[in-house]
Design a protein around this nucleic acid. Structure first.
Length: 500
RNA sequence: GGCCCCAUGGUCUAGUGGUUAGGACUCCGCUCUUUCAAGGCGGCGGCACGGGUUCGAUUCCCGUUGGGGCUACCA
């Protein structure tokens, strides 16, 4: 009947982290798969921790991943406002209704008192939930406390009979004992609603059909269902997603290092690779396919494919997947992404003319086959952009410290200097020709040449890469390296400060 | 502690009441010989344990163990 509506409801208390991005992605994929609508709602009911910068960071992260929203604070929509701090009157009204019907009451216990009593309960081996002290306050007592100017919050009077059954689309029916739940706060002393109240009211008012959120919220659903019932609101469907874990198998958090989504952009990840990778944690298309385009993800995504067990965020695999995307990516696109980085490193000029740009694209084309992160272009490919590169230890020990190498490099320099045309075929011809004249295998020139011109022992085809470095620079590098070699400057570095 | 969730190689996972339990990452080897951080080929490695149910359980049930989440006037 009605169209599917899902939402992502982050609280703006930090950057968009990997777990949040995962949740957002799943909710978004489901909406898109179903041809429904996706809502972004900002849950800033934590007045202390919510910040505007964080809100901007959430937008950035979502945009980066390619997640768009049909309704939200910035784009509006028929169920706004989409920022909870702008909906206070709505919550107030619902809270009043609950108080009116006797399902909520003012609680005058101070945080200190509560903590003290919780301690006692814990010490006795009892569950530290609210003891219901203010539950039975009479109207007179309430008036008296108010007259004293005592601060209060509002608690929901839990129905402690029977069980609450959560029908979860991922986990099936999950039953929670009502007697185990304490009266929880729905309005803080500040007048702000708590998450439980706000989420329930908004999901209903925004006509969310499927609440797709992380598993950590599964136990909260008991409270949400009770609230909805007391308010007379029809509950949505629920789907609780498996958590993302760090390598120590605990919920991914700050101590696991890079947890902010955008840190991965910094590290050189492509958004489409990260999106693909995130989709594969806790979901599978049911086949062996792993590299899925956005369209394929949308087409194949179903809640049935969501697994129940948590998944570890494996950076190795994410990196591999990124490499696969790099290989397949258009060189122009990659060039766009690495230009700023190269500029920041001072490796290319402020204004690349069309010719230099075409050259950069050619460098990318040559490199992308063997890169895994965008940063590899800058690090591994440094020699394309500057003569100022290091000779790594393998290059030193394998080739550059050999006795016969300097002379050969010089001969090669002379030969290459004489070339009239600087192209792949001419270069290859010159190198192979010299090898034949010296009566040595071509590899005996190729390897030292690579080591000299790039400082490394690995990289793209030598002839191809040489063609992308200016002829005079190649010649100069060969002569410089020969000189350094003769001077004994290219002996392997001692363990510890090795450049590789 | 209480409640809840989860359990296929180290990691992400497919899958089934009878399969040589499949794929991917990682690692290792071989190969290509113009290197590997690329390509190709191959290999190591898994159904947590104990009971049931069954002719037969990795698969279904129970328990154990292990891991995780929740237990806030955070969300």
């Amino acid at each position: 009947m009605s169209e599917v509506r899902t939402r992502f409801a982050p609280s703006p208390t930090g950057n968009l982290h990997v777990g949040g991005a995962h949740t957002a992605l799943f909710a978004w994929l489901f909406a898109r798969h179903e041809g429904g609508r996706f809502v972004l709602r900002i849950e800033d009911t934590d007045e202390v921790r919510s910040t505007a910068e964080s809100l901007a960071a959430i937008y950035d992260g979502l945009h980066w991943l390619g997640i768009d929203w049909d309704e939200g604070p910035d784009v509006g929509g028929p169920h706004g406002p989409y920022i909870q701090s702008e909906r206070l009157d709505i919550y107030e009204e619902h809270i009043a209704r609950l108080i009116e019907s006797g399902r909520a009451y003012r609680c005058y216990c101070t945080p200190e008192e509560l903590e003290e009593r919780r301690e006692i309960m814990r010490a006795r081996g009892l569950p530290p939930r609210y003891d219901g002290k203010c539950r039975a306050l009479t109207a007179d007592e309430t008036r008296r406390l108010d007259a004293q100017g005592r601060e209060f919050c509002v608690r929901f009077r839990v129905d402690d009979q029977g069980v609450t059954i959560v029908e979860d689309l991922v986990r099936g029916e999950v039953a929670f004992e009502n007697a185990l739940m304490g009266d929880f706060v729905i309005q803080k002393t500040s007048g702000y609603p708590t998450y439980h109240l706000a989420v329930v009211v908004d999901d209903y008012l925004m006509e969310i059909t499927h609440v797709i959120r992380a598993e950590e919220h599964l136990p909260n659903t008991q409270a949400h269902l009770q609230l909805m019932e007391a308010l007379g609101l029809a509950p949505p469907q629920f789907a609780h997603l498996p958590l993302i874990l760090g390598t120590d198998r605990t919920k991914l958090s700050k101590r696991h290092g890079a947890i902010n989504l955008m840190d991965y952009r910094e590290q050189g990840f492509l958004p489409e690779a990260m999106r693909n990778f995130l989709a594969l944690i806790g979901w599978s298309p049911g086949t062996d396919e792993e590299i899925l385009s956005l369209d394929e993800l949308i087409e194949k995504f179903t809640l049935e494919g969501v697994s129940r067990s948590p998944g570890v965020f494996d950076l190795e695999k994410a990196t591999w997947l990124n490499g696969e995307y790099l290989k397949r990516a258009d060189a122009e696109y990659i060039a766009d992404l690495i230009e700023p980085e190269l500029r920041a490193e001072g490796l290319i000029e402020e204004d690349l003319g069309p010719e230099r740009r075409a050259w950069l694209v050619a460098v990318v084309e040559l490199m992308k086959e063997r890169t895994r992160l965008l940063t590899d272009f800058v690090v591994w490919g440094r020699y394309f952009f500057t003569d100022d590169y290091l000779y790594d230890n393998r290059a030193r020990s394998k080739w550059l410290s050999r006795e016969e190498v300097p002379e050969r490099l010089e001969l090669l320099a002379d030969r290459l200097e004489g070339l009239e045309s600087w192209d792949v075929d001419s270069i290859e011809g010159a190198i192979r020709g010299l090898a034949a004249e010296l009566d040595v295998g071509a590899a005996k020139l190729i390897h030292p040449c690579r080591a000299a011109v790039t400082g490394q022992t690995v990289g793209p085809s030598l002839f191809d890469l040489l063609a992308l470095v200016p002829q005079k620079d190649v010649v100069a590098r060969l002569r410089r390296t020969a000189e350094l070699g003769r001077a004994g400057e290219l002996e392997p570095l001692p363990e510890g400060d090795a450049a590789d």
